[in-house]
Nucleic acid binder design. Structure first.
Lengths: 183, 183
DNA sequence: ATTATCATGTAAAAGGTTACATGATTTG
DNA sequence: CAAATCATGTAACCTTTTACATGATAAT
């Protein structure tokens, strides 16, 4: 599925692997991420399939860049994927919930400590979505005249992350409180 | 991490692979899942490491069962993992959000259709958490006298799933409404 | 009759992470 | 002077999924 993330981004404009990684880190991190090593190998595979073409851009003072451009085949593949409805829910894996499920043998203080660490991490993620991510999206939308729909959807997706993190923090607060009272 | 799910469940009582799969499907599905093939290979690896021991239980009218029992080494490993705090957030991958992010080229009706399919799937997941999952947990807790903490944590984890699905359905409603108005 | 359940496994492939390898420039 | 940034890639490994393989009994 990383292939569609890359095709989707390269459908905005050509980029190199390093820049794709930066784009994902700043804009898609809360719903899709990848390591550089996987981005490079996936770009190579997409070019071999004819979905992308690359050209080397020689730079002075900086290493050369391999710029990838989406082809018509790539656009068709992206379109077909966008049109296909998702008829399943993505099954989630939540290490924290797995740990809490089996944590009855831990003592109260240790369990609460675990939950508080997660609370601060999720609060930070929520702040990032409301701050940096919101700013990146607003800026990109403002530079994208004539394509207002993009901006609406980017914001909708950001909002999904915000609701999800709000719910997580609320659950952590609820649960810390419950354990303080009942353990 | 499946290893800790299996060690955690086998710490309640010995089971075979097939039964572990059923347990996970009915109780842990919303935060951890695995295919039978992976469960079998992981059990084998855990036994090779000395975390589990297995014995074959011969049955009439049914295929034989390989029952797995946790060892002291397994209990120690489980304990060490439970005590280690989780200092990172699990990065999520949400195919629906990936699709919506790039979906500006779809027409309004198609996009709304995609979101409505997901709405019904997430509503069904929410109903399952409030129905079957809640019942399974309540029943298991009632049969677990003297270990009330287990039941409190099982319910807390179920509640996390409920809050998460509620937030998802709310977001889908918000987004369907936004697209109906602004696209 | 057909489908579901019970029951265990192996093999191949795909997806993803970690480690290795290199090296210049810029910022602190 | 050290660390971060820019920049690309390969190799080994781990995790997970899909497909293959078998076969009896119970339910519809």
């Amino acid at each position: 599925m990383l292939r569609y993330a890359l095709l989707g981004i390269l459908n905005y404009r050509p980029m190199n692997g390093y820049e794709l990684k930066q784009f994902m880190d700043s804009a898609t991190n809360h719903f899709w991420h990848a390591k550089l090593s996987q981005i490079y190998t996936t770009l190579k595979a997409l070019e071999a399939e004819g979905m992308l073409i690359s050209t080397v851009l020689t730079q002075e003072d900086r290493p050369d860049k391999r710029m990838y451009t989406i082809t018509q085949d790539g656009r068709n593949d992206l379109r077909a994927w966008l049109e296909a409805p998702l008829i399943e829910i993505e099954p989630t894996k939540e290490p924290l919930l797995l740990k809490v499920f089996f944590a009855a043998q831990l003592d109260k203080a240790q369990l609460i400590a675990h939950l508080r660490v997660q609370r601060s991490l999720h609060q930070a993620a929520l702040n990032a979505l409301r701050g940096e991510t919101a700013a990146v999206i607003a800026h990109a939308a403002s530079q994208n005249k004539g394509r207002e729909k993009d901006g609406l959807l980017w914001e909708a997706v950001r909002r999904a992350g915000e609701l999800s993190e709000e719910a997580y923090v609320r659950w952590l607060d609820e649960t810390i409180h419950m354990i303080e009272e009942n353990f």
